[in-house]
Simulated assay, not measured.
Amino acid sequence: MMTNWIGIFGVMGTILTDNGGEFSSDEMREVASILNVKVYTTAGESPFQNGLCERVHAITDTMLMKLEADYRQVNNQSLLCWANMARNSLQMWNGFSSHQLVFGLNPNLPNILKDTLPALEGRTSSEEFAKHLNILHDSRKAYIQSESDERIRRALRSKIRATVLMVFYKRD
């Protein structure tokens, strides 16, 4: 949290977590107290409240598995960074990407719509740079494939909980 969020974006106002032990610990309460961060948790024994988070996690896991199969020599941290960049810049919420909602604009990533020569040639003398560009493009492909993954679709259909909540109140 310190290096990958606060070190880059600054201190957040609130954190919403599930009731996992890593979040409901004395250390987390102390950190939140020192940083003046409010910590909210979803109800215990109710994973359906974390559905959106779990769905995003499943899509990212699927992307990561596809990237790991193609790039065995690349460390998982680099693959995860590119998978998150692809997901955050492609996934839309009411017409806006996650990246756009946080930063106010979409990232400027290399693509055929904006690139001109020499960028369109797609050649470089640096193997490391070429590897990152290939991972970037493949992670975007993996996101599109994962987004329509039939396994995830089946899983979402099988665990539907339909509840009816009725609230009665008395008017004067």
Results as ranks from 00 to 15, higher is better:
Glu54Cys: 01
Met85Arg: 02
Ser78Val: 11
Asn84Pro: 00
Arg140Ser: 00
Asn88Thr: 13
Ser78Asp: 05
Tyr143Phe: 02
Gln145Arg: 07
Val74Pro: 15
Trp5Ala: 04
Met12Val: 15
Asp149Tyr: 08
Arg157Tyr: 12
Ile152Cys: 01
Glu45Gly: 05
Val102Glu: 08
Val167Ile: 08
Asn19Thr: 12
Ile8Pro: 04
Ile152Leu: 14
Glu54Arg: 00
Asn50Cys: 01
Lys66Arg: 10
Gly51Trp: 09
Ser158Gly: 13
Arg154Lys: 10
Ser139Pro: 00
Ser46Asp: 08
Glu150Trp: 12
Leu120Ile: 12
Ala130Arg: 15
Ile8Arg: 15
Glu68Gln: 14
Gly104Phe: 08
Arg161Asp: 15
Val37Leu: 12
Asp149Pro: 02
His57Leu: 05
Arg55Asn: 14
Gly122Lys: 12
Ser24Gly: 04
Thr17Tyr: 14
Gln145His: 04
Phe23Gly: 04
Ile144Glu: 02
Asn75Ala: 13
Asp172Lys: 11
Phe23Lys: 05
Gln73Leu: 11
Thr60Leu: 07
Glu128Asn: 04
Asp70Cys: 14
Val102Leu: 15
Leu117Met: 13
Arg157Pro: 02
Ala142Asn: 00
Gln145Val: 07
Arg157Ser: 07
Leu165Cys: 13
Gly122Ala: 11
Phe168Cys: 03
Tyr143Met: 00
Cys81Glu: 01
Phe48Cys: 08
Arg87Lys: 02
Leu120Thr: 10
Thr3Tyr: 09
Cys53Asn: 04
Ala130Trp: 13
Lys114Cys: 08
Thr60Cys: 02
Leu109Ser: 02
Thr17Cys: 07
Leu105Phe: 10
Arg151Gly: 04
Arg161Ile: 15
Pro110Ile: 08
Asp149Gln: 09
Met92Ile: 07
Arg157Phe: 09
Leu79Gln: 03
Tyr40Leu: 06
Leu101Phe: 09
Met63Asp: 00
Val37Arg: 05
Val102Phe: 15
Tyr169Ala: 08
Arg140Val: 00
Asp70Val: 13
Gln145Tyr: 01
Leu133Asn: 00
Val56Pro: 01
Lys170Trp: 03
Gln91Ser: 01
Glu127Tyr: 12
Gln73Thr: 15
Asp149Val: 11
Glu45Phe: 08
Asn134Phe: 03
Gly20Ala: 02
Gly7Met: 10
Arg154Glu: 09
Asn111Trp: 07
Gln49Arg: 05
Lys66Val: 02
Arg161Lys: 15
Ser126Ile: 03
Asn50Val: 05
Phe103Arg: 11
Ile112Thr: 05
Asp138Thr: 04
Ile15Ala: 14
Ser158Glu: 13
Val37Ala: 11
Pro118Thr: 04
Asp61Gly: 03
Trp93Met: 09
Arg151Cys: 06
Ser126Lys: 01
Met1Tyr: 10
